[in-house]
């Protein structure tokens, strides 16, 4: 009996090693394919001998010229715009989403199911459908062009209540008896949320903040229309695209564009590295019970 088991485990070891090798080779190939564009952009941003697209990847002359030149353009203004928008949206949207999830997870009220279904259906319409009318409304309120900041914040935050699914799922997994014990001890509903639920749901809070930050950080289509091409009202995505608008502009701005791209990616990359542990927990956490 013992012998047989041993024999079989030997074969298992060999086949596991083989399959692992294949999987690793596959993964390495895939990661190289995925990483190539990013490596190219980073390398191009350090190229100083020419400013246009070239047929080689590794620069002949290295330098920080492109990064230094960025500060002489409108780029810092675009960066600040984007940062303010993303920060405000991250805070406000997180608060709204968490309150919404808590309410739908813990309270039982009339039309609760109806409301959830209604939001589900609303969510099925692509957001782009509302773009024209939203643009008109913002324009009439004077929140376009150079004043696009409040307008964009309003638009990004407005529908955030509907993104409660993942965090509500996570809240559902926290035992209700904890709430009840706290309530018996005299805690208010708000205290239950702040002192019991949120500390237990840290991963999902971080996940919510991250996604709320990422949405406006990379948005292009809506920001493009709201900015009305006024340089001071653009976010980074729109601004960088405006450098590549025509053939001749690509020619003079391509490496500058790459440098801008790298700077844009930095904070998000750092944020992800620091919060990665929570992020994975957060994404999968809500899936346990929906």
């Amino acid at each position: 009996m013992n012998e047989r088991v041993e024999k079989r485990s030997m074969g298992l070891k060999a086949s596991r090693a083989l399959s692992n090798t294949i999987i690793y080779i596959l993964l390495i190939i895939m990661s190289v394919i995925w990483l190539i564009p990013f490596v190219c952009i980073v390398l191009q941003s350090f190229r100083v001998e020419s400013t246009w697209q070239v047929g080689y990847v590794i620069p002949q002359q290295w330098g920080f010229d492109n990064y230094i030149k960025l500060w002489e353009t409108n780029f810092p203004k675009w960066y600040l715009n984007t940062f303010i928008i993303a920060l405000v949206v991250a805070v406000v949207q997180t608060i709204i989403v968490l309150c919404m999830s808590y309410t739908l997870s813990r309270f039982r009220f009339k039309m609760r199911a109806g409301l959830m279904r209604f939001m589900l259906i609303l969510g099925m319409f692509p957001g782009m459908l509302a773009m024209i009318i939203l643009y008109r409304v913002l324009d009439d309120l004077g929140m376009t062009g150079n004043n696009s900041l409040p307008g964009l914040i309003l638009v990004y935050v407005a529908s955030s209540g509907m993104g409660y699914y993942v965090s509500k799922g996570f809240f559902d997994t926290i035992p209700k008896s904890l709430d009840e014990a706290a309530r018996v001890d005299g805690a208010t509903r708000a205290q239950v949320l702040n002192k019991i639920i949120l500390p237990l749901a840290k991963p999902i809070v971080i996940y919510t903040i991250l996604t709320a930050f990422m949405g406006p950080w990379g948005d292009f289509v809506f920001a493009r229309y709201v900015s009305q091409l006024k340089p001071l009202g653009m976010n980074v995505a729109v601004g960088l695209q405006s450098w590549l608008a025509t053939d001749t502009m690509t020619f003079n701005n391509y490496t500058l564009f790459c440098a801008g791209g790298v700077i844009v990616a930095l904070p998000v990359a750092i944020l992800f590295m620091c919060l990665q542990r929570y992020y994975v927990e957060g994404v999968t956490g809500g899936a346990v019970k929906g």
């Binding site: 643009y135 324009d139 376009t144 062009g145 229309y225 009305q228 091409l229 006024k230 340089p231 405006s242 608008a245 025509t246 502009m249």
Partner: peptide, 20 residues
Amino acid sequence: VNPVSEATAADQMLVDIDAG
């Protein structure tokens, strides 16, 4: 005076003439 390439200018005018 804003930098808007000629081809983009026409598109943007048609999006919203008031803001053009």
